[in-house]
Amino acid sequence: MSYCVNCGVELDRTAKRCALCATEVVNPRSPVDTRSPRPFPGYVDRLGAADSRFSALFIVMMWALPSAICVAVNLLFHSSGFWAAYPVGALGLVFLCAGLPALFRRVSVYVFLLIGTCGALAYLYLIELLGPTHGWWAAVALPITLAASASVFVLVALGKRKVRPLYLCCIGMLAPAAVSVAVETTCLLYITGAVTLRWSVIVTVVCLSISLLCLAIGRNSRAMAKLQRRMHI
């Protein structure tokens, strides 16, 4: 049997480290027993996802019922113009973004992001079709939506690579900066034809400052440890 030289406690013969202080077990007279079963099993039981089917059904009902009511009211009482397309389209977009992931849990998140992006573009196109003005979808909506979606794609990809939260925050703050520049540039080009960035510069400066602060804290392990303790949820 082995004892921890730091804590003075006797250790289980299968222990490679002391559980109290993580001191490694090095005992030539009694090497770590790697063949006997450990005191606790290694299998971790995850809580099942049984609830999501009910949530998914609930979401489908939340989309279908109001949509049906809007369409019925539009057709029966307000036959001029198909205004029901707006709420139905909006609810459809919500369903694509929230309902589908709940219904099909094993599909990759990137597929849902792509579906969400296409859904958003389709909804904006529908608004342009039904609205009085035309031509803004290709000039404004398309680039802004693609810029926003690209930012989300990058953030999700970083999140999946298990980047440290502060570094994720650091890069994540660049996303609103990029999107704000894209929005102002696109709008200015469409409206005036000239690009003179104003408010997006302020947003970019603020986001860059926060990003640099996160990077600075992330590289300082002492500050990180203190922040983790204080910001513990």
Binding site: C4, C7, G8, V9, E10, L11, D12, A15, C18, A19, L20, C21, A22, R38, P39, F40
Partner: peptide, 24 residues
């Protein structure tokens, strides 16, 4: 594991041997 370490090391100092098992 600071709380657990302080707990068991105090007991050891009082002359009570302790044997530890863990899933960590």
């Amino acid at each position: 594991t600071e709380v657990e370490r302080l707990f068991f090391t105090q007991i050891v100092k009082h002359g009570v041997p302790v044997k530890i098992e863990s899933n960590r």
